[in-house]
Each structure stands twice: as structure tokens, then as C-alpha cells.
């Protein structure tokens, strides 16, 4: 329990640090992001003082008191008040982010867990059958596919499976005619649209999990408790799973938490290729239109999601390793 409390404390501290980084980023940049933002916004009509204040709190005013700005900013973050987007004027930034977030969370979340579980199993198999075909095939393929740029895998799948063979839809998260709801028909339609982006992420991230698990498991296979288990005549499957793999999973889980940021980063590019309406696609639009308020809010959201995911991984680790319970 103390372990979980400590991890909660660490999460809060890290969240605060991420929020603070987000505050200082635009203020450290050359030029004035605030002026640029307000000028852009002015193209849509007069800028109200309230809107101006919100943007200043977020992107900074060169003359203002930095501490006051920081307090206002923290308040805005806590109330999810990120101002107005000028790319999608007059929608509020928080509305845009909250609409996009579920698409990414579900699609990327599910496929990442599937990839990790599958990769880990293949890694166990590769390490156990070391030096055989079952080792070299996944290891070498994994080495190669994990070097693929995410967006390139996406482009290839889009071209061959989307345009040439026309097996899957090429754009969006659901059919143009449908409106999002929770009916079985809509979910099936959404799942169908999610296949190509999901497979892209699976192909590109799987190799890393295979290699990581294989290497840690080769290490645990050399540990004394594995030799002792064999000396005691345990069945090979029990030695492999309950002894070698069970211990190898622990460092690998930590690796999973740390590599998560990379997968999320890659999936942003995948969304851009498939015009998938998640945070990545939105971030791309924000960046190309220099929509700084939207961009900042998205970066914060992505960071917070990864931090929370890492926290969950940490708690899971604590559950799996009795040594943390003392």
C-alpha cells in the first residue's frame, strides 16, 4: 500500500512538472507566440478581452508578472479552460481535445496492449527456443519492422490494402454518413475503419517488445533459480513460464512504460496518414495552422495520458513483484 501511495505522490509531482513545462515552453521560444495567436484570431473578428486574457495566460505576455500568469494558468488547466481554437473557430480548445481524445485512447490503447502481450509471448518463445527457427524468424523480422517509420508502414498499408486492393476504408474513423453512437452497427463500422491504423501500429511496435522480452528472458534463463528448477525436474513449460518468463516480465514492464511515449508519438503520424480524427490528426492541423493554444493543450493531454498510463504500469509492477510490498 505504501508503494502505491508513493507512486501516487510521484504521479502528482510528475504531472505538476509536465504542466509547468507546458507553461514555460511558449515563453522560452523566440518571438511572441501570443501576438501571433491573437493576430490569427483577429482574422475571425474582434478579439474579446476575456479571450485575450486566456491566450495570454497560456502563451505568455512579455511584460506581465510571471508568477501571476502561472497562477492563472494553473487555474485554467484545472478547469480545462484552454481558450478558443482559431483553426476551428469558434470551438473551444477543450471541446476539440475531448472529442478527439477517445478515438486515440481506444484505438492506440487497445492495439498497444495487444502488441505488448503478443510481442512478449513471441519473445518468450524466441528465448526459450534460442538458436532455432522460432528464435531467428521473429528476432530478425522484429529488428527490421521496428526500424520502419510509423508513417511509412501506414502509407504502404494505405496504398496496397486501401487503394489497390480496396479491402479497407482509406480515411476517417467511421463512414461519412454515420453519426457517433453506441449501437452495434456503429461500433462495427468504427472497428472496420480502425483496422489499418491499428495494424500499422501493431506491425511497427511488435518488434521492440519481442526483442526486449527475448533479451531479458535470456538473462533470467541463466539465473540460478532456473537451473535449480530444472535440477528439481520441473516440466520445461513450468520452468519457462513460472520461473524464467515470470521474472523477465518485470524489467520488461518498466521498459513498456518508458517506450509508451514512443508508440504514442508514432501513432500520431499514423493518424495523420489515415486522417483518423484523434489527437494526432488534430495536433497535425494545429501545427500546420500555427494554432498554438490548441497545440499546447494537445501536448499537455498527450503527456498526461502517458503519465497516467505509466502510473498504471507501475501499480501493476507492484502487484507482480512481492519485493515492492514490504
Amino acid at each position: 500500500m505504501r508503494y502505491v501511495l508513493r507512486k501516487i505522490g510521484l504521479l502528482l509531482l510528475t504531472l505538476w512538472a509536465a504542466v509547468t513545462l507546458n507553461f514555460f515552453l511558449p515563453r522560452m521560444m523566440p518571438g511572441s507566440p501570443t501576438d501571433a495567436a491573437i493576430a490569427k484570431l483577429a482574422q475571425n473578428g474582434p478579439v474579446s478581452p476575456a479571450t485575450r486574457a486566456a491566450i495570454e495566460a497560456q502563451l505568455g505576455v512579455p511584460t506581465g508578472n510571471i508568477w501571476d500568469q502561472y497562477v492563472t494558468y494553473l487555474g485554467n488547466v484545472l478547469t480545462l479552460d484552454f481558450g478558443v481554437s482559431y483553426t476551428f473557430f469558434p470551438q473551444s480548445v477543450s471541446d476539440l481535445v475531448l472529442t478527439a481524445l477517445p478515438w486515440t485512447l481506444v484505438m492506440v490503447g487497445v492495439v498497444t496492449i495487444v502488441a505488448f502481450v503478443l510481442g512478449t509471448l513471441l519473445g518468450v518463445l524466441a528465448a526459450w527456443k534460442r538458436g532455432t527457427f522460432l528464435d531467428s524468424l521473429p528476432t530478425l523480422t522484429g529488428t527490421f519492422t521496428s526500424a520502419f517509420p510509423y508513417f511509412w508502414t501506414a502509407l504502404l498499408l494505405l496504398f496496397f490494402l486501401g487503394y489497390v486492393l480496396q479491402w479497407f476504408p482509406t480515411s476517417g474513423a467511421y463512414s461519412a454518413r454515420a453519426t457517433p453512437n453506441l449501437s452495434a452497427a456503429f461500433i462495427a463500422d468504427a472497428a472496420y475503419h480502425a483496422v489499418l491504423p491499428a495494424v500499422t501500429i501493431l506491425i511497427t511496435s511488435l518488434g521492440g517488445w519481442i526483442l526486449g522480452m527475448r533479451n531479458t528472458m535470456i538473462n533470467t534463463l541463466g539465473d540460478d533459480y532456473v537451473t535449480f528448477a530444472e535440477a528439481n525436474g520441473l516440466k520445461p513449460r513450468a520452468v519457462a513460464l513460472k520461473y524464467a518468463a515470470r521474472n523477465a516480465i518485470l524489467p520488461n514492464l518498466t521498459g513498456f512504460g518508458l517506450a509508451l511515449g514512443g508508440v504514442v508519438g508514432g501513432s500520431l503520424l499514423v493518424e495523420r496518414v489515415f486522417n483518423y480524427p484523434g489527437v494526432g490528426y488534430l495536433l497535425y492541423n494545429a501545427v500546420t495552422n500555427q494554432d498554438f493554444p490548441l497545440m499546447q493543450a494537445l501536448f499537455l493531454m498527450i503527456t498526461v495520458s502517458v503519465l497516467v498510463a505509466n502510473f498504471i504500469v507501475d501499480v501493476l509492477y507492484g502487484y507482480l513483484d512481492p519485493r515492492t510490498r514490504r
Binding site: 512538472a17 509536465a18 515552453l25 507566440p33 509508451l260 511515449g261 508519438g265 498554438f292 494537445l298 502517458v306
Partner: peptide, 24 residues
């Protein structure tokens, strides 16, 4: 330790995208 761990978990590519957008 805290700062390195922060940089480890903050997703790299989004941060790069944000920085690159400011520094275009």
C-alpha cells in the same frame, strides 16, 4: 533522477513537434 525520469516518460515526438512548430 526526477528530471531524467520526466524526460523519459514525456512522449518525445509530440514534444519535438511542438518545439519544431515554434522554431519553424
Amino acid at each position: 533522477n526526477f528530471f531524467v525520469n520526466l524526460f523519459l516518460v514525456i512522449p518525445g515526438l509530440p514534444l519535438m513537434i511542438v518545439l519544431a512548430a515554434y522554431l519553424q
